[in-house]
Amino acid sequence: MDKKLEPIVQALQEKYATSIEEFRDEVHVFVKAENIVDALTLLRDKYDFELLSALTASDYWPQQSPRFHVIYQLSSIARNITVQLRVPVNGDQPKVLTATRVYDVANWRERELLDMFGIEFEGHPDPRRILMPEGTEGHPLRKDFPLGYEEPQFTFNIDEIDLHKPYAKE
């Protein structure tokens, strides 16, 4: 582990009783869902992690606990270090506290996770889908969502295919 990162990880461990994984010099800190906003605030204010580089998730279906990991990739520009926080969440309707009050970029990124994984962020100011059209059923990046093949529509068969096309209609 990077020398500069050791005290930070230690502080996180003492405060939030987290576990740690290391792989190829990357540090992954596991944080409980109820602590994530506090942990992010601590990292931003005390340890200069100004940039939420990435906010994403991973689905471990059919495993149910935890089913998802919500992943926060943080960068500190002042110290030139990175750390990853991972929040394991259970079940099919997972809920995590929103990080929009800590990082503005979390607004769109959390909407993306809501759209793609169906992870609900409590307290999000604008919980709409972001990439998929309004009224889409299901969450495409979940592992139980099939990678479907869609028939191409041409002028001669557009209505015929539209009848059994599995997307939202009126």
């Binding site: 792989f23 994403t56 991973s58 990739q73 990175t82």
Partner: peptide, 30 residues
């Protein structure tokens, strides 16, 4: 296991989060 690697694209930080599951296909690419 998973890795995050980033490069400087003409537009900024282009990062890839890549997670393997022990098999020949990625478990998750972000």
């Amino acid at each position: 296991a998973s890795v995050y690697s980033a490069v400087e694209s003409p537009r900024g930080e282009l990062g890839v989060y890549l997670e393997g599951d022990g098999g020949p296909k990625p478990h998750r690419v972000h």
